[in-house]
Nucleic acid binder design. Structure first.
Length: 597
RNA sequence: GCCCUUGUGGUGAAAUGGAUAUCACGAUUGCCUUCGAAGCAAUUAUUCCCCGUUCGAAUCGGGGCAGGGGCACCA
């Protein structure tokens, strides 16, 4: 799939308007205004960006280069012309035109100072915008299946989904979080078969099992599932039994009703425990059973309208008519498949929340199914089809190969969390910080979550993740704990300074490390809107890493508390602004910023 | 066979068509009586191949080579 195309489509749906008043958009507007004077023709696509190299200014634009092409003139001439028109002393310190035709801008100290003051005044709200004001987004993510494990793949979707939700919210969108869970289907049948088997061999009954801890029950069910799955593939007779169980589950047959309902509930309780730990909360829960019923009717209707066809006793969508492949929506047993269920889910969601955009985050292995599905949806509900987007994320895999619950080659979400937490506790105990035993557990939890979340969020969503324990456990370098450490260290300085400076003044900040920090700070609103525009979390992690880097250099090279009066105050204020931005960025990733660690 | 997708240092990743391709892990080495060493600084090497579009290509197009996923009753 062409991902860039998808991004454009997404923007068109939401009509992403950069109406916020951050410096970048102000610049773009200013330049665009001037361009209109030079050229009466229709719009030229120009870019204003923050250059890698500080020598190229706070901002840079390729406007002259782009325009040169249209006007067939020398980009330098055009650049100089734009420069002249923009040189209103108030906003820019300096503008230069350099080969091959870039125009570089240095923002005036006055504007920079105003921005820093805005950070301090806005505090938690800094970075919020109204780019997506009034837009409603339904965001589906996580989608674990009751009766099966919550593995690191689910952890990944959950972390990505929650972060995207926060990023969209920061841009002013109203976001509803949805979780769609497979409570019917072969996996449930396999699990129930296995659980029954295991109960029989251990002379355990349901009432007794119910008395055990939740963790025990979950583990019991997990072993049961593995047992059922093994039987299903290896033994024809067992396979038939399980297929029969599957039908009973759909019918809620009295044979399995109790064990099914209890098992389902236990799974859901367990998932809820994990969500709480991760800091996610869902607005809507959907289940395959109900979606399947709705989907079933839709497909039957569609069959009458000629949108679906009968084939070998199944009902299929003829995808080949649309350049895709055909897929079964209702199987020859008369049961809705995943596709029919998902089809039923769309109008169900819309009934609950009249969304402008419906995003569904899943692993990329079902990318082709979604193409067929969205095409079918477009035929039946054109409006909903046009508003639905699939965001495929990469697969989590091991160096040894694909992760599979069938072979038992899975890492459970909680196990990963516990492993990382152990490592963090070791480091905390080794250090000499005065952290109470009580606080220690909370900090270890926050740091462990930061390590995992950051590791997942910093890779681009589409590409696969090779999962490596050692890497995930790393607390140094480009990692969540590194950012948290930067924050805690600065907070410590602020505590020691005791009390805020009365005056907020930044005019005396002119060393290179100080300027580098200021430069990074003012980019924050741009990062937030760009992350939403492109639906990419790594824009935020990348931003954070650069900011933290600049802050650490500043910290190492520049005395703060020991500096003389006016400088000391200014530097304290700079740190204050920095802690606000660090905290706000981390919040977008769903990461906490402990004051001590 | 058809469709989709990926190819960037030893390994894993980053880079809205922009300036000197960025980082982490690994290796080697300096900096704690000095605001928190989970830090800072230094050394090492790279866009799979060919052609094209462009002022400018890791990025776009064509061809090749090599991985991965999918190709109807699992999700």
């Amino acid at each position: 799939m062409d991902s860039s195309k998808q991004k454009i489509e997404y923007n068109q749906i939401l009509q992403f308007s950069s109406s916020s008043l951050n410096i970048n958009t102000m610049l773009q507007t200013k330049i665009a205004e001037q361009l209109k004077r030079i050229i009466k023709a229709k719009s030229v696509e120009i870019e204003v960006f923050a250059p890698e190299n500080p020598k190229h200014g706070h901002y840079s634009t390729n406007a002259a280069l782009k325009l040169a092409k249209v006007l067939k003139k020398n980009p330098f001439e055009i650049g100089e012309k734009i420069k002249k028109l923009l040189e209103t002393k108030k906003f820019f310190e300096r503008i230069e035109v350099v080969p091959p035709g870039f125009i570089n801008f240095w923002i005036s100290e006055e504007i920079l100072e105003t921005e820093l003051k805005t950070i301090i005044k806005s505090e938690d709200d800094y970075g919020q915008s109204e780019n997506l004001k009034g837009k409603k987004v339904m965001l589906e993510f996580t989608d674990p299946n009751p009766f099966k494990e919550f593995h690191i793949g689910h952890l990944y979707t959950n972390i990505v989904g929650e972060s995207l939700a926060r990023i969209l919210e920061a841009n002013g969108a109203r976001v509803k979080r949805a979780n769609y869970q497979g409570d019917v289907g072969m996996h449930a049948a396999k699990a129930i078969w296995g659980i029954k088997k295991k109960m029989a061999s251990e002379k355990m009954n349901l009432t007794e099992l119910a008395k055990r801890t939740l963790d025990y029950r979950i583990k019991f069910m997990g072993v049961g599932y593995a047992l059922g799955d093994k039987g299903f593939t290896e033994n024809e007779a067992i396979k038939l039994e399980i297929v029969d169980l599957n039908k009973k589950i759909f019918a809620l047959d009295k044979d399995i009703k109790e064990i099914y309902q209890k098992g389902r509930k236990w799974s859901l309780d367990y998932f809820e425990k994990i969500y709480k730990r991760l800091g996610t909360k869902f607005d809507f829960y959907y289940f395959e059973r109900e979606a399947g019923e709705v989907g079933f009717k839709i497909v039957k209707d569609g069959l009458k309208r000629g949108l679906f066809e009968e084939s070998d006793g199944a009902i299929i969508f003829p995808g080949e008519k649309y350049g895709l492949h055909r897929r079964v929506f209702i199987n020859s047993q008369g049961l809705p498949t995943y596709e029919a269920k998902e089809l039923g889910l769309a109008p169900t969601k819309y009934k609950d929340f009249k969304y402008d955009l419906s995003l569904i985050i899943t692993a990329n292995e079902i990318i082709d199914y979604f193409k067929v599905l969205i095409m079918a949806l477009k035929q039946i509900y054109p409006k909903l089809g046009a508003r639905t987007r699939h965001i495929p994320h990469g697969m989590v895999r091991f160096a040894s190969g694909k992760m599979s619950s069938r072979t038992g080659n899975v890492v459970k979400g909680e196990d990963l969390l516990e492993e990382v937490k152990k490592g963090v506790l070791k480091i905390i105990e080794k250090g000499e910080r005065k952290i109470s035993a009580k606080e220690r557990g909370d900090v270890a939890e926050a740091v462990a979550l930061a390590a995992i979340k950051y590791a997942f969020l910093k890779t681009s969503i589409g590409s696969d993740m090779v999962f490596d324990f050692k890497r995930a456990l790393s607390l140094e370098g480009d990692s969540g704990p590194y950012i948290q450490y930067t924050y805690a260290r600065l907070k410590s300085v602020l505590r020691k300074a005791s009390g805020w400076p009365k005056k907020i003044d930044f005019m005396l900040l002119d060393t290179e490390p100080e300027k580098a920090v200021v430069r990074e700070l003012i980019y924050f609103p741009d990062a937030v809107s760009r992350a939403a525009e492109r639906l990419e979390t790594n824009i935020i992690t990348e931003y954070l890493y650069k900011l933290a880097g600049a802050l650490n250099v500043f910290y190492e090279t520049t005395p703060i508390l020991k500096a003389d009066r006016p400088l000391r105050e200014n530097r304290l204020n700079l740190i204050r602004a920095a802690t606000i931005v660090l905290k706000n960025s981390l919040r977008l990733l769903g990461i906490k910023a402990p004051e001590r660690m």
